[in-house]
Computed example of a mutant assay.
Amino acid sequence: MRTAAPLLPVLALTLVLAGCGQGSGPPASDASPTSPNDPRFQPLDAYDMSDDDVVTVGRARWTLAKECMVRLGFEDLENLDIDPVPAWPRRPAGTGMLELTAYASDDLRYGVQDPEQAARYGYQAARIEHEHRYPDRSWTLSEYLALTGQFVGEDPKSVHGHPIPRRGCLGEADRAIHGTNPQDRTDPVLDLGTKSIQQGMAAPAWKQADQKWSACMREAGYRYATPRDAELGEDRRSQELEQRLNGSSRDPDEPSALEKRTATADARCKRRTGYVRTVHAIDVHVQKELIAEHRAKLEAQRRWNDDAARRAEEILEDRS
């Protein structure tokens, strides 16, 4: 199950992958699925990095990045707390770029499923889950550039008289652990996981599940063709924008009452129609077909992950 913070955010959009929650975040089970009927069971997970290895790699990555930052002249970061590891650095506001962040969670692969969770978090459980797992920290522009190497316009390419490594200190750490920057290569687990959903949604049984769910939502007063339409909620976003323009004091990062009601109806209709059970079975079937077709590529990815985890363990042992 993928629980890592983002490997590298692009200039306009950051994709954050969050796995099982912890602490006071949204309720999610840390236990691995024990049955193929569990909607968390994904055949492709067998080729992905394990939860424990993700933690090990993350700690090694930030250990190396911290050493790099001290080398570049940020001596005050020598005692940076990396347990748990920080969230991916965000560029300071007002410095020439707007970052939009999209969050995804394995536990929400088929959208909201728990009415109680939906009533509390709306469609934002993945974001809240990630924020509880990876503490956010404010960085200066110099620190951000040194960590990420993500330059915009006339951003300086050096700090304290030292050139910033390619992709920053975090990128340098990635190369030490993985041999290359992960974002420079295709991850077949992610790639095939996306293809599985796309192919599954085209199946007649999946479309029928969407139709049953949509009919249930109409009875509750909502008109959406698919759960994805409800999550995007273009109509809801228009209402919320109008409310903000009219002086609403609601925190825009928190789910609105309308979003919570919609998400709750969504989750209830999934339960009433057996939606998740149906689409999960289709998804598993498609994943198994894709695995058979791309097994060599997936086995190579598993070896690549194992090698990275081993190097990360060695890095941490050398510094213990």
Rank of each mutant, 00 (worst) to 15 (best):
T3A: 12
A4C: 13
L7E: 08
P9S: 14
T14C: 09
C20N: 11
C20S: 09
G21H: 09
G25H: 13
S29L: 15
S32C: 07
S32V: 11
S35Q: 09
N37E: 15
N37T: 14
D38E: 10
F41V: 08
L44V: 13
L44S: 06
D45T: 14
D45V: 11
S50R: 08
D52R: 10
V54M: 05
G58N: 04
T63E: 00
T63M: 05
C68M: 07
C68T: 04
M69I: 07
L72R: 11
E75A: 15
L80E: 00
P86V: 13
A87D: 14
R90Y: 05
R91T: 06
P92Y: 05
A93F: 06
A93L: 07
D107M: 09
V112H: 06
Q113C: 09
P115I: 05
E116G: 06
A119I: 03
Y121I: 02
Y123R: 04
A125T: 10
A125F: 09
A125H: 06
A126G: 09
R127H: 06
I128E: 00
E129I: 12
E131W: 15
R133T: 14
P135H: 11
D136N: 14
D136Y: 11
W139S: 10
L147I: 09
Q150Y: 08
F151R: 07
F151P: 00
V152Q: 02
G153F: 03
G153W: 04
D155Y: 02
D155P: 01
D155I: 05
P156A: 00
P156L: 01
V159W: 02
R166L: 04
G168H: 04
G171K: 10
A173S: 14
I177G: 03
H178F: 10
H178D: 08
T180D: 13
P182G: 05
P182S: 06
T186H: 02
D187G: 05
D187S: 04
V189S: 01
L190V: 08
K195V: 14
K195W: 13
S196W: 07
G200R: 07
P204T: 13
P204Q: 09
W206K: 11
K207P: 09
A209Y: 07
K212S: 15
W213M: 09
S214K: 13
M217H: 07
E219G: 14
Y222T: 06
Y224G: 03
Y224F: 15
T226Q: 10
D229F: 01
E231I: 08
G233I: 03
G233H: 12
R236D: 00
R236I: 00
R237W: 01
S238I: 12
E240G: 01
E240V: 05
G247P: 01
S248W: 00
D251E: 03
A257Y: 04
L258K: 08
E259F: 03
R261Y: 03
R261C: 03
T262C: 01
C269L: 13
K270I: 09
T273N: 04
V279E: 00
V279Y: 01
A281I: 10
H285T: 15
V286W: 01
E289V: 08
L290I: 10
I291A: 02
E293P: 04
A296V: 12
L298V: 10
R303T: 12
W304T: 13
N305I: 13
A309I: 03
R310M: 08
A312F: 01
E314F: 12
L316S: 05
L316V: 10
S320V: 14
S320D: 12
